[in-house]
């Protein structure tokens, strides 16, 4: 564990806490894409299958349970909670995320570290996470004004993977046989997708203005 990875995990956890805070405090999920939340739940379920088979550390197990539990709770909330689901931007959240799932699964069958069920699922979860944020970014562009908590949520979500890239660079130079090229390439794509959001987020912070994404 290095400082980049720990900061990355804490940033990821913070993004989930901000999202939970927004939904709980405002009883609203406006500006949040249910499709992105469903994709993230799928990412965690596909990636953490080894939760009960390979024990890495207490930290690892606890964080996996938190990520799986929170992503499922958010999806449940946005689908079932009568107050919350009323504020869901159903007509704006129309990105066909099933194509993302199919595409990532096909890619995982072709490109993986080893053609074994756990490895294919792991690669699938890595590729899917890289594109999971697309429905959310599309929704933000369509909904124009972004409330603070939603903006912070998306910013933290993008920042965590950027910190993971620093972690991979650090591990590459410090560990002899370290190779995570699948996660690295997908992580670069994932972070690049946030590039324009980061730009407008920085502008809104610099000008102390409301976050506006050009539609």
């Amino acid at each position: 564990m290095n400082v980049f990875r720990l900061t990355g995990d804490m940033t990821h956890l913070a993004s989930i806490l901000v999202l939970l805070l927004k939904i709980y405090a405002t009883k609203s999920c406006s500006g949040i894409s249910l499709k992105t939340q469903e994709l993230y739940a799928l990412v965690f379920l596909a990636r953490y299958l080894n939760l009960f088979t390979d024990f890495i550390s207490v930290y690892n197990t606890v964080m996996k349970l938190v990520f799986i539990g929170s992503s499922l709770a958010i999806v449940w909330c946005m689908r079932m909670h009568k107050m919350v689901k009323r504020s869901y931007d159903q007509e704006l959240d129309t990105f066909r995320h099933y194509f993302l799932i199919a595409g990532c699964f096909l890619l995982a069958l072709l490109v993986n570290e080893k053609f074994m069920f756990p490895e294919v699922l792991w690669a699938f979860s890595i590729y899917l996470e890289a594109v999971s944020t697309i429905p959310q970014l599309v929704l933000l562009q369509r909904s124009g004004n972004v409330d603070n908590l939603t903006g912070q949520y998306v910013f933290l979500l993008g920042a965590y993977r950027a910190l993971y890239i620093l972690n991979w660079i650090y591990r590459y130079f410090t560990e002899p046989h370290f190779s995570r090229w699948i996660a690295c390439v997908a992580g670069l794509v994932q972070t690049a997708l946030y590039a324009d959001f980061f730009y407008y987020y920085f502008l809104s912070w610099k000008n102390n203005a409301k976050l506006q994404l050009p539609s």
Binding site: R5, R47, N50, E119, H177, F178, R180
Partner: peptide, 10 residues
Amino acid sequence: TSSETTKDEL
């Protein structure tokens, strides 16, 4: 070998 690297990251 690299493919057996335990997935120690989240």
